[in-house]
Nucleic acid binder design. Structure first.
Length: 283
DNA sequence: CACTTGACCTGTCCGC
DNA sequence: TGCGGACAGGTCAAGT
């Protein structure tokens, strides 16, 4: 669930809440969620970066705390006396730590950074910048970069026999797209997710990339998508799904043509399409 | 080699 | 009410 807009929203929150803070202590509640060969205590966060769906929290000693939220990860900063208040109805999380809390970092201003991860797929790793380069080296372009198109074209054309949705989900082709924004971008570009890349024109592929960038920009403005349990660094849910055109809209009319949105399976993933707007080309 | 499927986990929902 | 099973989707390893 956390895709580019969600991770970017978390990054912006951590920019405000964690950068400049020094780690005083680390409490690992689930061993598999935290990997390091050297202590994190005493290190200070100096920058919060993002590449694809990975958060990169640079440390003042040249190392980096890399975080991947995978499906159910959350990074939430709370003050010591913050009970998680607010209204239970619009809050997805209550008092922390809770049963999904895997790692807790104590920060020097009295706040704590909670890494929650219900399904334990996510991870935190303290690594060198060299390792960061290795982890990010094979990634495709960021879809919102101005020069993403020529690189995307070069990479996606290596997968002419693949269905276009699988190519969009391949982080080595284009970075940061997951199931929600793949469906949204393909609808916007009027391209069928099961179309083979080789059957699509450059023009159609460029339209898909541009739609992906646009839908992600919109989503960042709305704080991302909360499908199940995504929240930002302050524990707030995102509003994008209230405006989604096809994702989780099966049975509803297409806002462009009125046909009924259907849910199917493409590339092994739940996939939402307008069967009238998104026709499948032969080949 | 290119591509697809299964595994990793846990919680939720659905049918019996 | 309880229980089995399908499903959710990011990524990597294993299989075709």
């Amino acid at each position: 669930m956390p895709e580019l807009p969600e991770v970017e929203t978390v990054r912006r929150g951590l920019q405000q809440l964690a950068v400049g803070r020094t780690v005083l202590g680390v409490d690992v509640l689930n061993e598999g969620s935290f990997q390091t060969e050297s202590a994190l205590d005493g290190a200070r966060f100096v920058a919060a970066r993002r590449r694809a769906k990975m958060l990169l929290l640079d440390l003042d000693d040249g190392r980096c705390l890399a975080v991947h939220l995978k499906m159910t990860g959350q990074l939430v900063v709370r003050g010591a006396d913050d009970w998680g208040g607010g209204h239970p109805s619009d809050s997805l999380i209550g008092e922390l730590p809770d049963r999904s809390t895997r790692v807790v970092l104590d920060l020097d201003d009295g706040t704590r950074l909670f890494f929650n991860d219900q399904r334990k797929f996510g991870w935190m790793r303290v690594v060198t910048q060299e390792t960061v380069d290795e982890m990010t080296g094979g990634l495709g372009p960021e879809p919102m970069d101005d020069d993403a198109w020529p690189r995307f074209r070069e990479l996606v054309r290596r997968h002419d026999r693949t269905v276009v949705k699988a190519a969009l989900l391949d982080q080595g082709v284009v970075a940061g797209i997951g199931n929600i924004y793949a469906d949204e971008a393909l609808w916007g570009a009027r391209v069928h997710p099961a179309a083979r890349v080789g059957a699509l024109s450059d023009k159609a592929l460029r339209r898909v990339l541009e739609e992906a960038a646009e839908v992600m920009t919109t989503s960042i403005d709305l704080g991302g998508s909360t499908d199940r349990n995504y929240v930002d660094a302050e524990g707030r849910r995102g509003a994008y799904l209230d405006f989604a055109r096809v994702f989780r809209r099966e049975g509803q009319p297409c806002q462009r043509c009125g046909a009924t949105i259907v849910k199917t399976r493409v590339a092994g993933r739940g996939t939402h399409i307008c069967p009238k707007c998104q026709r499948l080309p032969r080949g």
